[in-house]
Protein backbone atom coordinates (compact mmCIF):
# COMPACT_ATOMS: atom_id res chain seq x y z
CA UNK A 1 0.00 0.00 0.00
CA UNK A 2 2.41 2.61 1.20
CA UNK A 3 5.91 2.90 -0.14
CA UNK A 4 8.32 2.20 2.66
CA UNK A 5 8.94 5.62 4.12
CA UNK A 6 7.61 8.87 2.90
CA UNK A 7 8.21 12.50 3.72
CA UNK A 8 6.40 13.56 6.84
CA UNK A 9 4.17 16.27 5.43
CA UNK A 10 2.37 14.28 2.83
CA UNK A 11 -1.33 15.01 3.21
CA UNK A 12 -3.45 18.01 4.07
CA UNK A 13 -3.78 16.49 7.54
CA UNK A 14 -0.17 17.27 8.29
CA UNK A 15 -0.33 20.93 7.40
CA UNK A 16 -3.30 21.77 9.53
CA UNK A 17 -2.18 23.61 12.67
CA UNK A 18 -2.94 21.47 15.68
CA UNK A 19 -5.18 22.91 18.32
CA UNK A 20 -3.28 22.47 21.54
CA UNK A 21 -5.75 22.50 24.38
CA UNK A 22 -4.85 23.24 27.96
CA UNK A 23 -5.68 19.65 28.88
CA UNK A 24 -2.51 18.52 27.24
CA UNK A 25 0.29 18.23 29.76
CA UNK A 26 2.89 20.91 29.44
CA UNK A 27 5.83 18.57 29.82
CA UNK A 28 5.17 16.56 26.74
CA UNK A 29 8.19 14.42 26.07
CA UNK A 30 8.34 15.02 22.37
CA UNK A 31 12.08 15.18 22.02
CA UNK A 32 14.61 12.82 23.51
CA UNK A 33 15.91 9.60 22.08
CA UNK A 34 16.64 7.40 25.07
CA UNK A 35 13.81 5.19 26.30
CA UNK A 36 15.10 5.44 29.85
CA UNK A 37 13.83 8.79 30.86
CA UNK A 38 12.98 9.51 34.44
CA UNK A 39 10.33 7.10 35.61
CA UNK A 40 8.06 9.48 37.46
CA UNK A 41 6.09 10.84 34.50
CA UNK A 42 5.75 7.55 32.71
CA UNK A 43 2.42 5.86 32.23
CA UNK A 44 3.84 2.76 30.61
CA UNK A 45 7.34 1.47 30.85
CA UNK A 46 8.39 -1.81 29.31
CA UNK A 47 11.75 -3.06 30.53
CA UNK A 48 13.65 -5.86 28.84
CA UNK A 49 10.49 -7.71 27.92
CA UNK A 50 10.94 -10.99 26.05
CA UNK A 51 8.37 -13.44 24.73
CA UNK A 52 8.78 -16.68 22.84
CA UNK A 53 6.29 -19.33 21.79
CA UNK A 54 8.24 -22.54 22.09
CA UNK A 55 11.33 -21.89 20.04
CA UNK A 56 9.83 -18.99 18.09
CA UNK A 57 10.82 -15.61 19.45
CA UNK A 58 7.98 -13.12 19.23
CA UNK A 59 10.08 -10.30 20.61
CA UNK A 60 13.14 -10.00 22.82
CA UNK A 61 14.51 -7.44 25.27
CA UNK A 62 12.11 -4.72 24.33
CA UNK A 63 12.37 -1.38 26.14
CA UNK A 64 9.67 1.16 25.68
CA UNK A 65 8.56 4.17 27.69
CA UNK A 66 5.45 6.24 27.16
CA UNK A 67 4.60 9.41 29.08
CA UNK A 68 1.24 10.99 29.73
CA UNK A 69 -0.21 12.69 26.68
CA UNK A 70 2.28 11.03 24.38
CA UNK A 71 1.32 9.21 21.21
CA UNK A 72 3.91 6.52 20.75
CA UNK A 73 3.77 4.51 17.56
CA UNK A 74 5.19 1.02 17.29
CA UNK A 75 5.94 0.15 13.71
CA UNK A 76 7.74 -2.60 11.90
CA UNK A 77 7.32 -5.12 9.12
CA UNK A 78 4.75 -7.92 9.41
CA UNK A 79 5.76 -10.43 12.05
CA UNK A 80 7.97 -7.95 13.85
CA UNK A 81 6.19 -8.68 17.13
CA UNK A 82 4.09 -5.54 17.47
CA UNK A 83 0.77 -7.18 18.28
CA UNK A 84 2.45 -9.72 20.52
CA UNK A 85 3.94 -6.83 22.46
CA UNK A 86 0.51 -5.28 22.99
CA UNK A 87 -0.91 -8.65 23.97
CA UNK A 88 1.87 -9.11 26.50
CA UNK A 89 1.29 -5.63 27.92
CA UNK A 90 -2.42 -6.43 28.32
CA UNK A 91 -1.75 -9.74 30.02
CA UNK A 92 -2.99 -12.02 27.25
CA UNK A 93 0.50 -13.46 26.82
CA UNK A 94 2.95 -14.29 29.58
CA UNK A 95 6.41 -12.95 28.79
CA UNK A 96 9.41 -15.04 29.85
CA UNK A 97 11.56 -12.13 30.98
CA UNK A 98 11.39 -8.45 31.78
CA UNK A 99 8.70 -6.33 33.37
CA UNK A 100 5.87 -4.06 32.48
CA UNK A 101 5.29 -0.99 34.63
CA UNK A 102 1.86 0.56 34.45
CA UNK A 103 1.80 3.74 36.49
CA UNK A 104 3.42 2.89 39.80
CA UNK A 105 2.97 -0.89 39.60
CA UNK A 106 5.37 -3.34 38.04
CA UNK A 107 4.35 -6.74 36.69
CA UNK A 108 6.15 -9.79 35.36
CA UNK A 109 2.80 -10.79 33.95
CA UNK A 110 0.12 -8.13 33.72
CA UNK A 111 -3.18 -9.31 35.27
CA UNK A 112 -5.64 -9.00 32.38
CA UNK A 113 -8.63 -8.86 34.69
CA UNK A 114 -7.25 -5.84 36.55
CA UNK A 115 -6.29 -3.94 33.44
CA UNK A 116 -9.35 -1.71 33.29
CA UNK A 117 -8.95 -0.88 36.98
CA UNK A 118 -5.35 0.10 36.26
CA UNK A 119 -6.62 2.62 33.74
CA UNK A 120 -5.64 0.70 30.63
CA UNK A 121 -7.89 0.14 27.62
CA UNK A 122 -7.16 -1.32 24.23
CA UNK A 123 -8.55 -2.10 20.81
CA UNK A 124 -7.83 -5.23 18.84
CA UNK A 125 -6.32 -5.77 15.43
CA UNK A 126 -9.17 -8.10 14.55
CA UNK A 127 -12.35 -6.68 15.96
CA UNK A 128 -13.31 -7.91 19.41
CA UNK A 129 -16.70 -6.28 19.80
CA UNK A 130 -19.71 -7.77 21.54
CA UNK A 131 -21.55 -8.42 18.31
CA UNK A 132 -24.94 -9.08 19.87
CA UNK A 133 -24.99 -5.90 21.93
CA UNK A 134 -26.03 -2.54 20.57
CA UNK A 135 -23.41 0.10 19.87
CA UNK A 136 -24.50 1.92 23.03
CA UNK A 137 -24.20 -1.22 25.14
CA UNK A 138 -20.78 -1.95 23.66
CA UNK A 139 -19.59 1.48 24.69
CA UNK A 140 -21.26 1.08 28.09
CA UNK A 141 -19.47 -2.22 28.60
CA UNK A 142 -16.24 -0.25 28.59
CA UNK A 143 -17.33 0.94 32.03
CA UNK A 144 -17.73 -2.57 33.45
CA UNK A 145 -14.80 -2.08 35.80
CA UNK A 146 -16.25 1.16 37.12
CA UNK A 147 -19.53 -0.43 38.16
CA UNK A 148 -20.19 -0.48 41.90
CA UNK A 149 -23.90 -1.29 42.24
CA UNK A 150 -24.61 -4.93 43.08
CA UNK A 151 -26.95 -7.20 41.17
CA UNK A 152 -29.78 -6.82 43.69
CA UNK A 153 -29.59 -3.04 43.51
CA UNK A 154 -29.66 -3.19 39.72
CA UNK A 155 -32.66 -5.50 39.55
CA UNK A 156 -34.63 -3.60 42.18
CA UNK A 157 -33.62 -0.28 40.63
CA UNK A 158 -32.31 1.19 43.90
CA UNK A 159 -31.34 4.88 43.75
CA UNK A 160 -27.59 4.22 43.87
CA UNK A 161 -27.79 1.80 40.96
CA UNK A 162 -29.97 4.16 38.95
CA UNK A 163 -27.67 7.11 39.58
CA UNK A 164 -24.71 5.03 38.48
CA UNK A 165 -26.52 3.71 35.40
CA UNK A 166 -27.46 7.25 34.46
CA UNK A 167 -23.95 8.60 34.94
CA UNK A 168 -22.54 5.77 32.84
CA UNK A 169 -25.16 6.36 30.18
CA UNK A 170 -24.20 10.03 30.03
CA UNK A 171 -20.54 9.13 29.66
CA UNK A 172 -21.36 6.66 26.91
CA UNK A 173 -23.59 9.13 25.08
CA UNK A 174 -20.83 11.71 25.18
CA UNK A 175 -18.37 9.30 23.58
CA UNK A 176 -20.97 8.15 21.05
CA UNK A 177 -21.57 11.77 20.12
CA UNK A 178 -17.88 12.58 19.84
CA UNK A 179 -17.28 9.62 17.55
CA UNK A 180 -20.33 10.36 15.41
CA UNK A 181 -22.04 7.07 16.25
CA UNK A 182 -25.33 8.60 17.36
CA UNK A 183 -27.26 7.43 14.32
CA UNK A 184 -26.32 3.79 14.86
CA UNK A 185 -26.33 3.73 18.67
CA UNK A 186 -29.20 1.26 18.88
CA UNK A 187 -28.01 -1.07 16.12
CA UNK A 188 -26.26 -4.35 17.00
CA UNK A 189 -22.54 -3.69 16.69
CA UNK A 190 -21.97 -6.87 14.70
CA UNK A 191 -24.13 -5.63 11.83
CA UNK A 192 -22.23 -2.39 11.22
CA UNK A 193 -19.73 -1.83 8.43
CA UNK A 194 -16.14 -2.57 9.34
CA UNK A 195 -15.00 1.03 9.65
CA UNK A 196 -17.79 1.85 12.07
CA UNK A 197 -17.06 -1.25 14.14
CA UNK A 198 -13.49 -0.07 14.53
CA UNK A 199 -14.89 3.22 15.76
CA UNK A 200 -17.19 1.49 18.25
CA UNK A 201 -14.18 -0.35 19.62
CA UNK A 202 -12.38 2.92 20.08
CA UNK A 203 -15.45 4.24 21.86
CA UNK A 204 -15.52 1.26 24.22
CA UNK A 205 -11.87 1.92 25.04
CA UNK A 206 -12.31 5.68 25.48
CA UNK A 207 -15.42 5.71 27.66
CA UNK A 208 -13.54 4.75 30.82
CA UNK A 209 -11.11 7.64 30.27
CA UNK A 210 -8.04 5.42 30.41
CA UNK A 211 -4.61 6.71 31.32
CA UNK A 212 -3.10 4.35 28.81
CA UNK A 213 -4.70 3.49 25.50
CA UNK A 214 -3.32 0.70 23.32
CA UNK A 215 -4.51 0.79 19.73
CA UNK A 216 -3.66 -2.24 17.62
CA UNK A 217 -3.96 -1.18 13.99
CA UNK A 218 -6.99 1.06 14.45
CA UNK A 219 -6.96 1.97 10.77
CA UNK A 220 -6.33 -1.38 9.15
CA UNK A 221 -8.56 -1.93 6.17
CA UNK A 222 -10.01 1.57 6.22
CA UNK A 223 -10.54 3.97 3.36
CA UNK A 224 -8.54 7.21 3.21
CA UNK A 225 -11.51 9.20 4.52
CA UNK A 226 -12.06 6.79 7.40
CA UNK A 227 -8.36 6.95 8.23
CA UNK A 228 -8.44 10.73 8.35
CA UNK A 229 -11.46 10.59 10.67
CA UNK A 230 -9.86 8.00 12.91
CA UNK A 231 -6.67 10.08 13.06
CA UNK A 232 -8.79 13.00 14.23
CA UNK A 233 -10.48 10.86 16.90
CA UNK A 234 -7.19 9.58 18.25
CA UNK A 235 -5.72 13.04 18.38
CA UNK A 236 -8.86 14.37 20.07
CA UNK A 237 -8.73 11.54 22.61
CA UNK A 238 -5.23 12.61 23.58
CA UNK A 239 -6.22 16.28 23.74
CA UNK A 240 -9.27 15.73 25.94
CA UNK A 241 -8.04 13.07 28.33
CA UNK A 242 -4.27 13.44 28.24
CA UNK A 243 -4.01 9.67 27.87
CA UNK A 244 -0.80 8.03 26.82
CA UNK A 245 -1.40 6.23 23.55
CA UNK A 246 0.50 3.32 22.08
CA UNK A 247 -0.35 2.96 18.43
CA UNK A 248 0.42 0.11 16.11
CA UNK A 249 -0.08 1.16 12.54
CA UNK A 250 1.09 0.13 9.12
CA UNK A 251 0.32 3.34 7.32
CA UNK A 252 3.61 5.19 7.70
CA UNK A 253 2.07 8.47 6.60
CA UNK A 254 -0.43 8.30 9.46
CA UNK A 255 2.26 7.29 11.93
CA UNK A 256 4.50 10.18 10.98
CA UNK A 257 1.71 12.73 11.22
CA UNK A 258 0.17 11.44 14.41
CA UNK A 259 2.89 10.27 16.72
CA UNK A 260 5.23 12.11 19.04
CA UNK A 261 7.66 9.25 19.16
CA UNK A 262 8.15 6.09 17.19
CA UNK A 263 9.64 2.74 18.13
CA UNK A 264 10.63 0.45 15.28
CA UNK A 265 10.64 -3.32 15.72
CA UNK A 266 12.19 -5.75 13.33
CA UNK A 267 12.25 -9.50 13.87
CA UNK A 268 11.24 -9.00 17.49
CA UNK A 269 14.04 -6.53 18.26
CA UNK A 270 13.80 -2.84 18.87
CA UNK A 271 16.00 -1.22 16.24
CA UNK A 272 15.17 2.44 16.80
CA UNK A 273 13.26 4.85 19.00
CA UNK A 274 12.89 8.56 18.47
CA UNK A 275 10.85 11.32 16.94
CA UNK A 276 9.34 10.54 13.56
CA UNK A 277 12.05 12.60 11.87
CA UNK A 278 14.84 10.84 13.77
CA UNK A 279 13.44 7.41 13.03
CA UNK A 280 12.96 8.23 9.38
CA UNK A 281 16.60 9.18 9.07
CA UNK A 282 17.85 6.13 10.97
CA UNK A 283 19.95 3.91 8.69
CA UNK A 284 18.88 0.72 10.51
CA UNK A 285 15.22 1.55 9.97
CA UNK A 286 15.74 2.31 6.32
CA UNK A 287 17.61 -0.93 5.90
CA UNK A 288 14.89 -2.93 7.63
CA UNK A 289 12.14 -1.37 5.58
CA UNK A 290 13.88 -1.30 2.24
CA UNK A 291 15.27 -4.74 2.79
CA UNK A 292 11.84 -6.13 3.47
CA UNK A 293 9.86 -3.93 1.13
CA UNK A 294 9.34 -6.63 -1.49
CA UNK A 295 8.35 -9.34 0.93
CA UNK A 296 6.06 -6.90 2.63
CA UNK A 297 4.29 -6.18 -0.60
CA UNK A 298 3.91 -9.90 -1.21
CA UNK A 299 2.46 -10.39 2.23
CA UNK A 300 -0.05 -7.64 1.75
CA UNK A 301 -1.05 -8.84 -1.67
CA UNK A 302 -1.75 -12.28 -0.25
Amino acid sequence: MQPALRPVRSGPEGRRPLPRSAARPAALPVAGGSPHRDRAGLVLSIEGLSLAFGGTVAFAEIDLAVGAGEIHAVIGPNGAGKSSLINAVTGLYAPQAGRVRIGAEAFARVPAGRLAALGVARTFQNLALFAGLSVRDNVLSGLAAARRAGLGAQILGLPAARREALAHRDAAEAVIGRLGLGAVADRPAGRLPYGLQKRVELGRALVARPRLLLLDEPMAGMTATEKAEMTGFIRAARETSGAAIVLIEHDIGVVMRLSDRVTVLDHGRRIATGTPAQVQADPAVIAAYLGLADEDADAEAA
Binding site: A116, R122, A128, L129, L133, D137, S141, A144, G190, A208
Partner: peptide, 17 residues
Protein backbone atom coordinates in the same frame (compact mmCIF):
# COMPACT_ATOMS: atom_id res chain seq x y z
CA UNK B 1 -24.80 -6.79 29.52
CA UNK B 2 -21.86 -8.59 31.06
CA UNK B 3 -23.49 -11.96 30.34
CA UNK B 4 -23.71 -11.13 26.64
CA UNK B 5 -20.20 -9.67 26.66
CA UNK B 6 -18.83 -12.99 27.93
CA UNK B 7 -20.81 -14.84 25.28
CA UNK B 8 -19.64 -12.64 22.41
CA UNK B 9 -16.00 -12.14 23.33
CA UNK B 10 -14.63 -13.46 26.57
CA UNK B 11 -11.17 -11.91 26.16
CA UNK B 12 -12.51 -8.46 25.46
CA UNK B 13 -14.96 -8.84 28.35
CA UNK B 14 -12.13 -9.65 30.75
CA UNK B 15 -10.09 -6.68 29.53
CA UNK B 16 -12.89 -4.17 30.01
CA UNK B 17 -13.17 -5.39 33.58
Amino acid sequence: RNLVAIRDNETAARLVG
